[in-house]
Simulated scan of single mutants.
Amino acid sequence: MTAQLSDQILAVFRVVLKNPAMSAEDDFFESGGDSTAAVDAAAMINQQTGVAVPIAQMFIYPTAEELAEALSSLSA
């Protein structure tokens, strides 16, 4: 589940940041994201996966891989 969620989050990050080369280990904010983009990404992740993303989690876990792991443990 975590790998699939990571892939879905990464796809959203790539769209929101218009950065198709972004990897699952790349930091959302270091790759050009800001708080507005984080809100957009969180909403899009929720819409596409049904997983609610607290915005604070994006700042604590700024990579797709870390965020997927955190969200998986929150919903467990």
Rank of each mutant, 00 (worst) to 15 (best):
Q4I: 11
Q4F: 03
L5P: 02
S6C: 13
D7I: 03
D7P: 01
I9G: 02
L10K: 00
A11F: 02
A11V: 03
A11P: 02
A11R: 12
F13E: 05
F13Q: 07
V16H: 02
L17I: 09
L17V: 09
L17Y: 09
K18F: 02
N19W: 01
P20A: 08
P20I: 05
P20T: 07
A21D: 14
M22V: 02
M22E: 05
M22G: 00
S23Q: 12
A24V: 09
E25Q: 13
E25I: 00
D27W: 04
D27Y: 03
D27K: 07
F28C: 11
F29P: 04
S31Q: 13
S31M: 12
S31K: 08
G32P: 10
G32C: 08
G33R: 03
S35D: 08
A37T: 10
A37W: 00
A38S: 14
A38P: 04
V39P: 04
V39F: 07
D40W: 00
D40F: 01
A41N: 04
A42H: 02
A42D: 03
A42L: 03
A43P: 00
M44A: 10
M44S: 10
M44F: 00
I45Q: 04
N46D: 08
N46R: 12
N46L: 01
Q47N: 10
Q48M: 06
T49C: 05
G50W: 07
V51W: 04
A52H: 10
A52Q: 14
V53R: 10
P54W: 09
P54M: 11
I55Q: 10
A56E: 12
A56K: 12
Q57I: 00
M58R: 09
M58H: 08
M58W: 06
I60S: 12
Y61S: 13
Y61M: 06
T63R: 03
A64T: 06
A64K: 11
A64F: 03
E65H: 05
E65A: 14
L67K: 07
L67Y: 10
A68W: 07
A68P: 04
E69Q: 15
A70S: 15
A70E: 14
L71R: 13
L71W: 09
S72V: 14
S73V: 15
L74Y: 10
A76N: 14
A76T: 12
